[in-house]
Design a protein around this nucleic acid. Structure first.
Lengths: 96, 96
DNA sequence: ATAAACAAGTTTATGAAATAAACTAAAATA
DNA sequence: TATTTTAGTTTATTTCATAAACTTGTTTAT
C-alpha cells in the first residue's frame, strides 16, 4: 500500500518553506515571503506550525532597526523532509 | 520561484488514485479502496472530483450481479499528472 | 515636529476541502 | 426469511489554507 504522507509537509507553502530551508543555512521571513510569493499572514501561520513540530527554529532579532525573523531547518525537519520525499517517490514514480 | 502545484492533484487520496490509475489499464472502486485504504465515502467524493476535471472516466456496470464502478485515467489526467510530478521535483530536489 | 506611508509581522475570520458518519439498495448468507 | 455484507452515495463535521484586518515600529515627506 502507498505510504502515508506527512500532513505537515503535504501543504504547498510549508513544503516550499522546507524546500528552501533545506538548501540554505538560514533564511529570514522577508526572503521566504519573496521566494514563495505567500502573503505575510499565511507565511506566519505556516512558520508557526513548522516550529511547533520542531521542523524549523525561529530566531527573532533585528536587522538594523527592523525586526527580523530568521528561520532554520532542524535535523528533525531534515529527516521528515527526506522521508516525505521518499514517500512521494512511491506515488509519482509510475511504474507503467 | 517554485511552480504552483495543481490543487486537484495535491491531495493524498486523489494523488494515490491517479498514481494507481497511471500504472494500470483500469481499476474498479473496490480495488482502489483496498489499495488506498480510504473509506468508501472519501473515495467516492474524490473520484467525482477527478471525473469532473476529466482526469479520469468512470464506467458503471456489473461484475456478476454486483455493481462495479470502473475508473480509467484520461490523456488529460495523464498530462496533468506528469506536469504535477515535474513541478514537485522542483520542490523536493534539494540542491543542497 | 507631525502626519502619511511603509515594513515586518501577528491575529482573527472566512471559505474550501478532507474526512467521517449516516444512509441506500441490492445481494449473499445463516 | 431475517441478518449481514457489498458497493457505493449523500450529508455533516472538522480541519486547514488563505485572506483580511490589525499591530508595532520606522522611514519619509511637510
Amino acid at each position: 500500500m502507498l505510504p502515508k504522507l506527512d500532513p505537515l509537509l503535504h501543504s504547498e507553502l510549508r513544503l516550499a518553506i522546507m524546500s528552501i530551508l533545506a538548501g540554505v543555512e538560514s533564511a529570514d521571513f522577508t526572503f521566504l515571503k519573496g521566494q514563495t510569493g505567500a502573503t505575510s499572514g499565511n507565511l506566519s501561520v505556516q512558520i508557526d506550525k513548522l516550529t511547533a513540530a520542531n521542523y524549523i527554529t525561529v530566531e527573532k532579532g533585528f536587522k538594523g532597526k527592523m525586526p527580523c525573523t530568521t528561520c532554520k531547518i532542524t535535523q528533525t525537519g531534515r529527516d521528515a523532509f527526506s522521508q516525505y520525499v521518499s514517500a512521494l517517490q512511491e506515488y509519482i514514480q509510475t511504474n507503467k
